[in-house]
Computed example of a mutant assay.
Amino acid sequence: MLTETPRTLVAHRYVAIGGRGPEDVVADARGRVLTGVEDGRILRLDRLTDPAGVRVEVLAETGGRPLGLELLTEDSLLVCDAERGLLRVDLTDGTVRILADSVAGERLRFCSNAVALSDGSVCFTVSSRRYPLRHWIGDIAEHTGTGRLLRLAPGSERPEVLLEGLQFANGLVASGDESFLVVAETGACRLTRFWLTGPRAGRSEPFAENLPGMPDNLWRGAPDGPLWVALAGPRVPPLELLHKGAPAVRRAAARLAVRVPFRPTGTIGALAFDDTGARLHHLTARHSRFRMVTSVCEAAGHLVLGSIREPGVALCELPSLK
């Protein structure tokens, strides 16, 4: 295991993709990267390291704002769409099917990230029950704790609530043996474990706390691979102080926050953990021109970074375990 000392996140190349806001990036078995951009398109990026230019293929259009992605097969993709809910996309013909757009009669306002389990069920997160994507900063400021972890059973159209009270539930990944899920709580700078099997099934506990930044999407390429965590921004002491304030103070701050243009800092980062919660990597960069990193995956021999704001992706040096 590596030390806690952070190492520099070294960017080799920035790649424009013809769309803004590749919020989540996931790699397929052939090393291609899939992502969704703000105009609703699902893109597949190939030849990312080719000096002659990346190949960008449009696979589908969701009609909303795609966020978290999860490959089911080479030709099938789960999409968490912030406007339309949980979707399944056929990558051969672009057909989009809604799997769930409400829970217990309440519309899914802010579907964020999903993971498919081997039993055919799909677990996914909802970041906020009060704020839509365009006002995400309001939820972070108010610290609503209305995030949820949901499960859609095979063949069902009605999700069940596994866990609620989460602080801006975001990225989601399963352990290698699928005994538990790890969910990112962006608003609390922590990762939370939810047990699926065993004597603690149905219970939650901290997986990693006091992270050096705000976690966003999670990704792992193989059951025995590292769990990668994108850090969308550094910790903000005044914000953490606000979170200790009275609800009325936080609501007032949220009303102001959604009216002021958000300017992300140049501090970005990524973490990697194993299933015991041991930290394997801590990568960080200051004064980066690629800002607000919301996702990270391994592809083409690099770490590929996505961002909800940038017009492309970044290719960074892939660290070793030595």
Rank of each mutant, 00 (worst) to 15 (best):
R13Y: 10
I17F: 14
G18C: 13
G18A: 14
G19M: 12
R20W: 13
V25P: 05
V25W: 05
V25K: 06
V26S: 03
D28F: 06
G31R: 06
D39M: 13
R41G: 05
L43P: 04
R44Y: 10
T49F: 03
G53W: 14
G53D: 14
V56I: 15
A60T: 09
P66Y: 12
G68C: 09
E70I: 04
E70G: 07
L71Q: 15
L72T: 10
T73C: 06
T73R: 11
E74P: 03
D75F: 08
D75W: 15
S76M: 04
L78K: 13
V79M: 10
L86S: 02
L87N: 10
T92P: 00
T92C: 06
T95F: 11
R97F: 10
I98N: 04
L108C: 05
S112Y: 14
S112D: 15
N113L: 03
S118M: 04
G120Y: 02
S121T: 11
C123A: 11
F124E: 11
T125W: 15
V126W: 02
S128D: 01
W136N: 07
D139I: 04
A141E: 02
E142L: 07
H143M: 06
T146F: 14
G147P: 06
L150H: 04
L152V: 02
A153Q: 10
P154L: 13
G155Q: 11
G165F: 09
F168H: 01
A169K: 04
N170V: 03
L172W: 02
D177A: 07
V182S: 09
V183H: 06
E185W: 14
E185M: 03
T186R: 09
T186M: 06
T192D: 05
G198M: 11
R200T: 07
A201L: 04
A201C: 00
R203H: 06
P206D: 05
P206V: 10
L211D: 03
G213T: 00
M214H: 15
P215G: 06
D224E: 14
G225R: 13
L231D: 11
A232H: 03
A232R: 00
R235P: 12
L242R: 00
K244V: 00
A252H: 09
A252P: 05
A253P: 01
A257H: 09
R263M: 00
G269K: 14
L271M: 06
A272C: 05
F273V: 00
D275L: 14
D275A: 07
T276D: 04
L283M: 09
R286C: 03
R286S: 13
R291K: 13
M292A: 12
T294G: 05
A300P: 06
H302G: 07
L305W: 13
P311Q: 12
P319V: 04
S320K: 01
L321A: 11
